[in-house]
Computed example of a mutant assay.
Amino acid sequence: MSGNRFFIAPDVFANTEIIFPREISRQIHSVLRLKAGDLVTVLDNEGHCRQVEIREVDARQVIGSAGEIFPAPGEPGVELTLCPALTQREKFEWILQKGTELGVRHFVPIITGRSLIQETGGWNEKIIRWQKIVREAAEQCGRGLVPEISTPLKLADYLNRDERPRGYILHEREQHAGLADSVMRHLSTGNRQIALLVGPEGGFTEDEAGQANSAGLVSVSLGARILRMETAAMAACVICMVVAGELGSFSVAVRS
C-alpha cells in the first residue's frame, strides 16, 4: 500500500470512484504535490483500506479510482485507554499525538483536583482540534483506526462509569506493585483491555488515589524516579505495549 494514507468517510470509501474532501484534496495538490497516476491509501476507520490511483488533481477536488478492499493493518492486539489529566495545550496535544503513535485506542481526558485546566464545558472546538491531531498522527504512523477521544470528565465521574476496562493509576507513592508485572498478570487472563490513569503536575491527591482504589483501580509504580506527567504517560504506554508483544519480542529480565 502507498505511504500516503488518508481516513475518509465510510460512504465515500465504499465508492469505486473516490472524490476526496476539500481539505485532503488541498493536501494532495498543494502539500504533497501528487500527480495523476500516483497511488494513495484510503481507510474507512472501520478496519478497511484500499489503494486509490489518482486521476484528476485540483486544489479544490481530487478524484481517483479505488482498488480492492483489504483489512487495515496497524492496530495493536491490546485495547489501551489512556486517561491523562488535563494540562497545558502543547503538552496535552503532544500526549495525544505520541499516544496515538504508540497504539492508544481511547483517550479520556480527566479533570482532577490539581489539573491545570479546570473547565467543565465548552469542549466542542477543543475536541475538533484534538480529533484532527490524532487523525493526522494515525495516518502518519500507519494505524488502521483513529483513536476515540471522550469529552473530558471529572475523576469521580470516570470512576462512576459502569463499564471501564481493567484500570491502573500511576501513583508515585506506590512502592510494591510495578506496572509491567501487573499488566503481565492481567494479560495472562486473556483480557486485552487496559486503562491507564495519569495524574497532573503534582500528582493525584491521596484522597483521589483512595477513591480510585475503592473503584477497583490498582495503584502502580513506574520506578524510583519522579517523572513528568507526559513522560509518565508515554512510559506507561510503552510498558503496556512491550508486555503485550506489540513493540517487538519481549522476555522477562531476571534480577540478581
Rank of each mutant, 00 (worst) to 15 (best):
E79M: 11
F92S: 09
Q88N: 15
P10M: 00
E230N: 02
E230L: 08
G121T: 10
P165Q: 09
S214P: 06
V42T: 11
G216V: 01
E119S: 13
M229L: 15
L102E: 00
D157S: 14
R225E: 02
A156R: 14
A215T: 04
I19R: 14
R143Q: 08
G190H: 03
Y168S: 01
E53V: 11
E93Y: 07
W130G: 07
K91T: 14
R105M: 13
T41C: 15
A180N: 02
P165T: 06
A177M: 14
L217Y: 12
I127T: 04
Q88M: 13
S214K: 15
K132C: 04
T16S: 09
L32Y: 10
S25E: 05
Q140P: 12
E79S: 14
L217N: 02
L197R: 14
S2G: 13
R105W: 10
T189F: 01
T112H: 12
E46C: 14
I110L: 13
L34G: 04
I169E: 09
F7C: 01
G142L: 12
G47M: 11
R26M: 08
G190C: 01
F6G: 02
A244I: 00
H176W: 05
F20T: 09
S251G: 03
A177S: 14
D181H: 11
C237L: 12
V243G: 00
A235E: 01
R89S: 10
H106Q: 10
P10Q: 00
L80T: 01
P71N: 01
H106M: 05
V78D: 00
E174I: 04
V252G: 04
V252Q: 14
A195C: 11
G74H: 01
G103M: 07
Q27L: 15
M1D: 08
G3L: 03
E125R: 15
E23T: 14
Q97T: 09
C83G: 06
L82H: 10
G67M: 05
A137G: 09
M229W: 03
R135H: 08
Q131I: 06
M229T: 15
G99Q: 08
H171P: 10
I19L: 12
L153I: 01
K91Y: 10
F204V: 00
Q97S: 07
I110M: 08
S30H: 07
V12L: 15
A224M: 09
A235S: 11
L197G: 08
W130R: 12
D11T: 12
E23D: 14
P109V: 05
E46R: 15
E139F: 06
F92V: 08
A177L: 15
F13P: 11
V52W: 01
L179D: 01
L222I: 02
A66G: 11
W94D: 01
L222V: 03
R192L: 05
I239T: 06
A177C: 15
I111T: 09
L86A: 09
L96V: 05
L159Q: 05
P165A: 08
P73G: 04
D11N: 12
R228E: 03
